[in-house]
């Protein structure tokens, strides 16, 4: 399942970026995204997708954030709760520090969030493959970002959902279908 979704671009990146540890020069956000691909390629997670405010950057106006949310799916192990400890172990093996719940990847705090409900899992599976410089990065699509923000609730997330809607990047029928499928109740006026 994992390999069938990968493009030749992604496979080329894996070959050209043997080590996630940068030796010289200041890292860029592209380097952080490259590490996410390496994390997936190593098998420590089965798939990932960037979510939250960092994902919004790909579709709407810039919004404040101080960390990068990354949703991941993990190998089924039969247990009711799945541990993401192996992700932290993998990161430490690559030389990245762990601070509280964040992996510090080239100084960028990355929060790994296991897919904790069917909506998140669907968002990861349906994520879009975007380009950032020379790196392919999987990003949660705008419809799922709105649905996730509305499901989680809170003023900041609702504002994020409205930003995406106002940017005109959301397929409204698709969003409605997602909300219905996952039982997320929300009134979205047509003029937003």
């Amino acid at each position: 399942m994992k390999s069938s979704r990968r493009t030749s671009d992604e496979r080329d990146e894996k070959k050209s970026a043997a080590s996630p540890v940068r030796i010289s020069g200041m890292a860029s956000l592209a380097d952080v995204f490259r590490v996410l691909n390496q994390m997936r390629d190593s098998g420590v997670v089965t798939e990932y997708a960037v979510g939250g405010a960092t994902a919004v950057l790909f579709y709407a106006e810039p919004t404040r954030t101080y960390d990068v949310d990354v949703f991941v799916t993990l190998q089924e192990c039969g247990a009711p709760l799945q541990s993401i400890a192996p992700v932290y172990w993998w990161a430490e093996e690559q030389g990245f520090a762990v601070q509280a719940e964040h992996l510090m990847i080239y100084g960028v705090p990355v929060k790994i969030l296991p897919s904790f409900n069917p909506l998140v899992e669907e968002a990861v599976i349906a994520a879009r493959l975007e380009r950032y410089d020379d790196v392919s990065v999987r990003v949660v699509g705008p419809e799922h970002l709105v649905a996730l923000a509305l499901q989680a609730g809170g003023a900041r997330r609702r504002e994020r959902a409205w930003q995406l809607l106002q940017a005109g990047v959301v397929d409204r029928p698709q969003l409605t279908a997602i909300l219905v499928r996952h039982g997320v109740r929300a009134e979205i006026p047509n003029d937003v």
């Binding site: 509280a100 964040h102 100084g107 705090p109």
Partner: peptide, 12 residues
């Protein structure tokens, strides 16, 4: 501030 609340030390 929390320990991780720092400006990201990366280039765009």
């Amino acid at each position: 501030l929390k320990a991780w609340e720092r400006p990201w030390d990366v280039t765009p």
